[in-house]
């Protein structure tokens, strides 16, 4: 078995499966295999390429654009996210149901800000948002 590759299942594109290199961003790997995806900056600074991780693990250390609420909702930035295991994703704008939020209607708690300015999340806090 080739340990450098994992299987990505794209749930909202008919559960189609793709074998991809773990070392490369998912956006590049999936685009090369014919999956048409939105993108913008390609360095993790905007959320145009966001997808939702339904299962599996990824590394997106280069992503700076997502706040903790978006991260808690499973959003990943495909342009910088590299898979650490087999993963199941929703991709494209169809996965953006929780990505956007009117800040005057639904303010962020201090622990929901972007990781560089968020306060630590209270231990054992129940999700009530």
């Amino acid at each position: 078995m080739d340990t450098d590759t994992v299987t990505i299942t794209v749930a909202n594109r008919g559960n189609e499966q793709f074998t991809v290199d773990r070392r490369r961003p998912l956006l590049n790997s999936l685009e090369e295999q014919g999956v048409s995806l939105p993108y913008g900056c390609k360095y993790g600074g905007c959320i145009s390429c966001a997808g939702k991780l339904l299962s599996g693990e990824i590394n997106q250390a280069a992503a700076t654009a997502l706040n903790n609420r978006q991260l808690n909702d499973g959003y990943i930035l495909l342009c910088v996210a590299r898979p650490l295991s087999d993963c199941t994703l929703d991709v494209g704008v169809d996965s953006h149901d929780k990505l956007y939020r009117n800040p005057f209607a639904s303010p962020l708690r201090s622990d929901e800000l972007k990781p560089d300015i968020a306060t630590p999340s209270p231990i054992n806090q129940e999700t009530n948002s």
Binding site: G40, C41, G45, C46, I47, T64, A65, L66, N67, Y100, R101, P103, F104, P107, L108, S110, L113, K114, I117
Partner: peptide, 18 residues
């Protein structure tokens, strides 16, 4: 910064001098 405004507007970031 682009990394601040490109993802959208988090009002709370104004108070954090972003």
């Amino acid at each position: 910064a682009p990394n601040t405004f490109m993802p959208g507007f988090d009002l709370e970031e104004v108070g954090h001098l972003k």
